[in-house]
């Protein structure tokens, strides 16, 4: 009988010894778990960001095109005071705000239908449908909109009988296209937020005499506000950094991303490009600071 007991014990292998060591050394375990992602974060993410910040305070010798690593505020001053940069910053901000507003207005009813009205089966279908555009390439979708919005495109064909016209290429086209591109990123957090609101709260509101609008305003909206803000962070930040869509459907308009692009490429002025790139970063940090108190960051 004792023989049987001994045999039923697992054999000691190197793997088992290693596991036993890790079980009793939680710090080693944690270090092994996080070593790779931490290395990636520090090297690729933080170092790149820090370099960007530092480069903004260097300058380029306009004669030789070589970067001088001497501290100067010239780039920052030029970006803050130059009328070109001010105009483009305001334009970019306007586009980002418009895109965010349109996306929230479109996403709210869709998310509400998905979370509170549709059957469970329909709900799954809709989530997949919302995600489907994300499987297609960004460029393909932007060019698809270029074709839709062109002078002999489908939009013109649809609107012409009613006396309407396609907006053509320009800022409205940019706003429409960006709204389309970022809509899934706004729908999904709002949908998730609505999912977390129990149906009984809506019933309780109706039961207590609250009609549809008071129920939405006093119960649903305050509860999903953090989720809405989480969604707007996506659409706002993604719009601020975009420069491809505006190139494809924006006509001659430029956004901050285009200025960065031309300064890196054509003008070969990396320090100035870095200084311009700091503008959206500062705006986003300002936005995040404003919404931090609403608890929206817990919803990301």
């Amino acid at each position: 009988m004792s023989q049987a007991l001994v045999e039923s014990r697992p054999r000691r292998t190197a793997m088992r010894a290693g596991s036993a060591f890790l079980t009793t050394h939680p710090r080693t375990r944690l270090a092994l778990l996080l070593a790779a992602p931490l290395f990636w974060l520090v090297v690729v993410y933080i170092v790149a960001l820090a370099l960007l910040l530092v480069t903004a305070f260097w300058s380029v010798d306009s004669f030789t095109g070589v970067i001088t690593t001497e501290f100067t505020l010239d780039n920052i001053i030029e970006v803050v005071t130059g009328s070109l940069y001010q105009t483009v910053t305001l334009r970019t901000l306007g586009v980002a705000l418009a895109v965010t507003l349109i996306d929230v207005v479109l996403a709210l009813p869709i998310a509400f239908y998905m979370a509170k009205v549709a059957s469970p089966r329909m709900q799954r279908v809709l989530v997949i449908l919302v995600l489907t555009p994300l499987w297609a390439s960004y460029l393909v979708k932007a060019y698809a909109w270029r074709s839709v919005l062109s002078q002999d495109g489908i939009l013109e064909w649809l609107l012409a009988p009613f006396g309407g016209h396609t907006p053509g290429y320009g800022l409205p086209a940019t706003i429409i296209t960006l709204s389309y591109l970022w809509l899934p990123y706004v729908i999904l957090p709002i949908y998730a937020g609505l999912e977390r609101v129990p149906d009984s709260l809506l019933e309780a509101s109706g039961d207590l005499g609250g009609k549809t609008w008071p129920t939405l305003r006093l119960v649903v909206f305050p509860l999903i506000l953090p989720a809405i803000i989480a969604g707007t962070i996506f659409s706002f930040a993604l719009s601020l950094g975009d420069y491809i869509t505006v190139n494809i459907v924006g006509g001659t308009n430029q956004m901050l991303g285009n200025l960065v692009y031309t300064n890196v490429g054509a003008a070969n002025n990396l320090p100035l490009a870095s200084a311009i790139a700091l503008i959206p970063i500062v705006i986003i940090f300002g936005y995040l600071f404003l919404v931090r108190r609403t608890g929206a960051l817990d919803n990301l």
């Binding site: 129990p198 009984s200 709260l201 019933e203 309780a204 509101s205 039961d207 207590l208 005499g209 609250g210 009609k211 008071p214 006093l218 119960v219 305050p222 509860l223």
Partner: peptide, 27 residues
């Protein structure tokens, strides 16, 4: 008619007093 729900269905973002006053508020 009014209902007392099994899970109580109190509004989590409102204070207790606001919860109780809700039915009067929407009226």
């Amino acid at each position: 008619v009014n209902t007392v729900f099994q899970d109580y269905a109190l509004f989590p973002h409102m204070s207790v007093l606001e919860n109780v006053a809700y039915g009067l508020r929407v009226r």
